[in-house]
Design a protein around this nucleic acid. Structure first.
Lengths: 234, 234
DNA sequence: TATCAACTGATTGTATACAATCATATTCAT
DNA sequence: ATGAATATGATTGTATACAATCAGTTGATA
């Protein structure tokens, strides 16, 4: 019964667990992850944990500081801007390629519709973490249909970083609008309406970035400014 | 004297050595790299080697097969097509962003010119390996100027895979034309001529792909076709 | 009281020992 | 001679022990 499970390596599973935890905001940006702590949780030695952490580092969700340890990444506003800039480029290209494949994709589109349904359900019960994760999975599943593995892999890193960005900078309105956008985007793709699909994707990403800029100043604490009123003259 | 060197970790250095060796074709596609063998060469234990190999795997130049070991990747024609497709997308976007920065880049452009000079010198003395590496470095240095780290990182993986692709599929004419193309591309960027810069970059990547398709059938041996003339009827 | 130095505890860096796994060579039966 | 089954050697998978490093604390000194 467990012979099939072997095809997924241990560190692969642990990688996914940590990945999901971060995407669902059960691990906040900046939190330190000790190797021994994680090892106890998952019942393995530090060796396995290291491999998982290295991979997460390469995807940009973990920052690995030599001799200091692993921390959940805290993307600043500039990094967030770059990530969303890259997403805009990649995802528009992916949508274009998916639309080009056109009618071959009936079954895959059904899968995506059920993903949207799940996402909607999560949002309805205020399960924000799951909703964010499912939103990301929608984008990644869509990317799989474009027949370009390097791009899909790259998007994986971008999406996970976006989840961190949302976790850090989201305003209360949340992801309800995003769900409708996913739905409409999928409609356009199904109908082969490239132009509409592209503009919907662009809009979608613009909305995320718009939310980000709303709270731009909040995160970077400039101590000099905070205490400017009582600063002693040099 | 060696306190500054510490900032680069051991596995970082080993990673770069292997990376360069692959890019310079001193390690051919398909070659097996044993952990102990590498460990002896670099005077470290397998632990360090593992980290370097994991990173190389994530960049797509090494294939890590569970319980079997690490092999230099052998991209097939479809994978090559995807890599070059992705490069076209990313590098055009990067050129656009570099041109947009315009005149701030005098010093950086000089650095790029000296890189081209080195590349030219390598090609002149038929040092193909170094020429390929320097060609890749030109693209990566250019990417640094676009102010988008995720994209630049992604390009790093794409360029290294391209070097493998060239190693596997190159025809004899080699990279001389590419050098002129680099030079002209840089001219266009320096003059802020976006349109020319974009079309030169597109041309440049088309040339690489054109070379690839020339030898498309050579690598994937379809036994059924090879022995089609003597096949027994079902 | 403030500053700096040394100490302490905890965490990561690295090497190594042993277990698990796979490829190859060998043996045996047909 | 061919084929399958088994044995062997080499390589990777994993855990762990010890060394190196760092952050925070304690204590001495001005």
């Amino acid at each position: 019964m467990n012979s099939k499970v072997k095809s997924v390596t241990q560190d692969q599973k642990i990688y996914e667990h940590i990945f999901d935890a971060i995407l669902e905001q059960r691990l906040a940006p900046g939190i330190k992850l000790t190797e021994e702590g994680l090892g106890e949780v998952f019942g393995v030695s530090r060796t396995i944990i290291r491999r998982a952490l290295v991979r997460l580092t390469h995807e940009g969700v973990i920052e690995l500081i030599p001799n200091r340890g692993a921390y959940v990444a805290k993307p600043n506003v500039e990094e967030a801007r770059q990530v969303l800039d890259a997403r805009r480029l990649i995802e528009l290209a992916l949508v274009e390629r998916v639309v080009a494949r056109g009618a071959q994709l009936e079954r895959e589109i059904k899968t995506l519709r059920s993903l949207i349904k799940e996402e909607h359900a999560s949002a309805a019960r205020a399960d924000t973490g799951t909703a964010i994760r499912l939103s990301g999975e929608f984008h990644l599943e869509l990317a799989q249909l474009a027949n370009n593995e390097p791009m899909a892999n790259f998007l994986r890193a971008l999406v996970s970083q976006t989840s961190l960005i949302i976790a850090m900078y989201e305003s209360s309105q949340g992801s309800n609008c995003a769900i409708d956008e996913h739905s409409r985007l999928l409609d356009a793709i199904e109908q082969g309406d490239k132009k509409t699909a592209l503009s919907l994707m662009a809009e979608h990403l613009d909305h995320i970035e718009a939310r980000l800029e709303l709270v731009q100043g909040e995160q970077e604490v400039d101590l000099a400014k905070v205490f400017a009123h009582l600063r002693v003259r040099a």
